[in-house]
Amino acid sequence: MPNGMIVLHAMFPIDLNRRTEALDLIEDLAEQSRQEEGIIKYHATIDITDPHLIWFFELYKNEAAFTAHTETAHFREFEEALPRLLSGEPTIHQFEVEDVSDIKL
């Protein structure tokens, strides 16, 4: 099992006819996820050039924290809703990192 932090970068194309439902679920998912132990960052945002794309950026303390997240009720509720919310295939990339630092601009 990996020992480093887990970063997820994901894009979900949402059916515009289901956008309000999707955003409500995503807002709840993000709010509850941020309260989980082991989640360092959890952000969801709407693409500024394409309003049907929702981007997720998630940073977990380790693989165990990510696994625990996927077993929560709020994650499962969102996962079960995806087939009716999506307008295409999501893309999800997972990275394992040893260190994260801020960059000053």
Rank of each mutant, 00 (worst) to 15 (best):
M1R: 02
M1H: 04
M1T: 06
P2F: 12
N3A: 10
N3S: 15
G4S: 07
I6W: 00
V7C: 07
V7F: 02
H9D: 10
H9V: 11
H9E: 06
A10V: 00
M11F: 03
P13N: 08
L16D: 02
L16Y: 00
L16T: 10
N17S: 14
N17M: 00
R19N: 06
A22D: 04
L23Y: 00
D24Q: 13
L25A: 02
L25Y: 04
I26A: 09
D28F: 01
L29K: 01
A30Y: 01
E31S: 11
E31M: 08
Q32M: 01
S33D: 02
Q35V: 00
Q35T: 07
Q35S: 07
Q35E: 10
Q35C: 05
E36T: 04
E36F: 08
I39H: 02
Y42N: 04
H43L: 09
H43T: 04
H43G: 04
A44T: 05
A44F: 13
I48P: 04
T49M: 10
T49A: 12
D50G: 09
D50H: 10
P51I: 07
L53C: 07
I54K: 05
F57W: 07
E58G: 07
Y60Q: 10
K61C: 00
K61L: 08
N62V: 05
T67I: 13
T67D: 05
T67W: 03
A68S: 13
H69Y: 08
H69C: 08
T70N: 05
T72Q: 07
H74N: 04
R76Q: 15
F78Y: 09
F78E: 01
E79S: 12
E79H: 11
E80N: 15
E80S: 15
L82R: 07
R84E: 15
I92T: 13
I92F: 08
I92N: 07
H93C: 00
H93R: 06
H93E: 01
Q94V: 08
Q94G: 11
F95G: 03
E96H: 04
E96K: 01
V97C: 12
V97S: 06
E98Q: 13
D99F: 13
D99S: 15
V100S: 14
V100N: 12
V100H: 12
S101R: 13
S101Y: 13
D102K: 12
D102E: 15
K104G: 09
K104W: 13
L105G: 11
